[in-house]
Design a protein around this nucleic acid. Structure first.
Lengths: 221, 221
DNA sequence: AGACAATTCAAACAATTGTTTCCAACCCGG
DNA sequence: CCGGGTTGGAAACAATTGTTTGAATTGTCT
């Protein structure tokens, strides 16, 4: 069988190791030795470790943004007659479907989620800036549609709630192995990813539609 | 003013830097120089960097489990007359209060959350086992009380929902810096941790009380 | 085949890391 | 006042890190 191209081998190995151990804890030597390529290959093809990290993200996020934009186009076309207001459930459903589609052709959903989680928690400033600049537009488009679907929510409240549910999804799917261990140990029940998504849906919808907090924060003047 | 003990100065500084930059990205030299202690002091008092991290961990976890057990004792005593059923809101409220109390006397809540997140994400790490042994009993006690408060939920469903909301809290609070950056940039609004907790409460409660998923998973025979 | 660019390779680089050592100073209870 | 536990200081250690270099190799085109 023909081995994949060097660049691909590096990316394939890097994303797995990054997901397992984080960025700083994964050395280039570990990546290159496991990928069976020369150490210098990373700097030759990507320039630096930082660029490699961004390339790993791009391989997930580029097809994601493409598909997500297309899915939102279709969704908007369907609802052009009723004031362009798309129900919250449909928006969330579309996002979930797109998120599931992308890793289907790549490695695994878990890696994707782990990487997203690392992008937030790990203090790699350059990564956050890169993601926000490169992919902020899709997220802004999505939040705008969510805004029309939830007019009763103040902007800041909606922002935080979206990240709350983002946290739920990323945390659950990225730590899936650990959670599955505990769940099977306690309930002798095997859970699939699709099973988890089914459980997540009503929880996420209810979270977004929760009553407003009792004492609204003093609004910025 | 009397300066704190060297061990304390190291721990205080380490937990702040760990929270800001992560563990691997924080060098002992950075810690010791900022703490104004000698570089060798860390290895003298703690033995290694690994032990230092665990010491930082213990300084949160030990008082937390202690206080949480005590808080649950009190809560159970208060509700001994009405079938020992404690409303879900009170349970969540008590947990939130305890989680907030511990870092109140320490430095930052963020370190606590980051450490918890790490415990889950590192699927086969020794850290998760350590936490599960040390911290598992109090969590099992808590889930049992939640079980009585939500008798309509199947056991597995409740398990997953608890971890869903756990994911929200850990993700939000451990990635607080990143989220705060984005929020301030978009809404010119500074959010405090207490502000976030206030926003979290109704969302978490609604998430736990969401309707059951449409198609119940095929039950294990 | 010859020529030229792209790629691979081993080796070394410079910087940083955790850790250890040795020694002088300090503090405090005996 | 002595002496063991602690602190501070500087240096060096061995190991690992990302990155660079220059030669060897491969591939591709005329």
């Amino acid at each position: 069988m023909a081995q994949p191209d060097t660049v691909t081998r590096i990316l394939d190995t890097a994303e797995v190791l990054f997901a397992e151990r984080g960025f700083a804890e994964t050395s280039l030597r570990h990546i290159t030795s496991k990928a069976k390529v020369n150490l210098a290959a990373v700097n030759y093809h990507f320039g630096s470790k930082k660029s490699l990290i961004q390339a790993v993200f791009a391989r997930y996020l580029d097809p994601f943004t493409l598909r997500f934009h297309a899915a939102l186009d279709e969704l908007e076309a369907q609802h052009r007659h009723d004031d362009s207001i798309i129900p919250l459930e449909e928006l969330l459903e579309t996002m979930a479907r797109t998120v599931l589609e992308v890793p289907a052709e790549r490695n695994s959903l878990k890696v994707f989620m782990r990487l997203l989680g690392l992008a937030y928690s790990q203090a790699q400033g350059h990564l956050r800036r890169y993601i926000q600049e490169e992919y902020g537009s899709v997220f802004r488009r999505f939040t705008e549609l969510v805004r029309r679907a939830t007019p009763e929510l103040p902007d800041a409240e909606r922002f935080w709630r979206l990240h709350f549910v983002l946290g739920t999804v990323i945390f659950t799917l990225s730590g899936l192995d650990a959670l599955r261990d505990i769940a099977e140990q306690d309930y002798q029940e095997h859970v699939s990813v699709r099973d988890l998504i089914r459980r997540l849906r009503p929880v996420v919808v209810s979270a977004m539609q929760a009553p407003l907090p009792e004492l609204p924060a003093q609004e910025a003047g």
